[in-house]
């Protein structure tokens, strides 16, 4: 197995263990953006232990902050936090809050949780980078349901207006939200046409093919004078048969049995 795939697999296992341990969290949306996070941390972003605490560097804003378990799992894969600490997820006194707080944990680049705000903060970071004349890039992951928030489109308008070619947005397009199918709750299609109308470069790819995600992100960086959105086609709950495409697994923790089955399906080390 490629090392990136191995990281993604380990992240999925950790996500499930964390949410099981806490009996709280959002497995569906965490598993759907796991490969995007893997591509970012192991192929796209320049982030390492030496620059981790720099005010200026490549940054990631997980605007869909409820997928915090996936972010923490990625930070653990990078070696920024221990796997042991992962198991403190959402527990009292933990740095790993249910929704990420930048003040508690190095590597969390913006506090998120209230949906629809992350893209705006990224606009601020990109404007600051342009002012400072540096070439750091800012990455954002939004949920597709999150695009129902009006502030997303305020930010999209501003990013297009300011021609922020140092901004790359991934839309985790899994088609589901808390209440069910996005197309039935409040349809947001066509996402690409909407961003294009705000002067964005619009790309689309398989959101679970890490190599392709990296390649598309590299291509996006070559696009000047426009921000880029990559509509990443994903499956909510990806990797666990009984969670895949099931809106019920948006915000529910697995029980002991379900965890065992999920880990068995994911394979890897059978240390449970």
């Amino acid at each position: 197995m490629e090392s990136r795939e191995r990281h993604a697999l380990n992240m999925r296992r950790n996500i499930l263990k964390m949410i099981h341990r806490a009996q709280s969290g959002h497995p569906g949306g965490s598993l759907s953006c796991t490969d995007i996070l893997t591509a970012l941390y192991f192929g796209i972003m320049n982030i390492n232990e030496d620059n981790l605490n720099d005010v200026q560097r490549d940054k990631l804003i997980l605007s869909k902050g409820h997928a915090s378990a996936a972010l923490y799992a990625a930070l653990a894969e990078k070696g920024f936090i221990s796997e042991e600490e992962l198991m403190s997820y959402s527990r009292i006194g933990s740095r790993l809050q249910g929704h990420p707080n930048m003040n508690e944990l190095g590597g969390v680049d913006m506090s998120t949780g209230s949906l629809g705000m992350g893209l705006s903060a990224a606009v601020g970071m990109c404007l600051a980078n342009k002012l400072d004349g540096n070439d750091f890039r800012t990455y954002v992951i939004c949920g597709d349901g999150e695009l129902q928030e009006g502030q997303i489109w305020e930010a999209a308008m501003a990013a297009g207006y300011y021609r922020l070619d140092n901004l790359l947005l991934f839309v985790d397009h899994n088609g589901l939200q808390g209440d069910g199918c996005i197309s039935e709750v409040m349809n947001i299609e066509s996402i690409g046409a909407k961003f294009a109308a705000f002067n964005w470069n619009v790309l689309s790819c398989d959101g679970h093919d890490i190599d392709v995600l990296i390649e598309v992100a590299r291509y996006a960086a070559s696009c000047k004078t426009m921000p880029t959105v990559i509509i990443a086609e994903t499956v909510k709950g990806k990797g666990v048969s009984f969670m895949e495409d099931q809106p019920d697994w948006h915000g529910k923790a697995p029980n002991d049995e379900q965890l065992a089955q999920a880990l068995a399906e994911l394979g890897g080390d059978s240390d449970e």
Partner: peptide, 28 residues
């Protein structure tokens, strides 16, 4: 003028943009 940003009639966006700039070391 290069350090003044008019975000249009979008106060929610403006405050979050200000936060992002501050996170990158600016005094917003």
């Amino acid at each position: 003028p290069e350090r003044h940003f008019n975000l249009g009639i979008a106060e929610a966006n403006m405050i979050s943009v200000a936060a992002g700039m501050a996170a990158n070391g600016k005094i917003s």
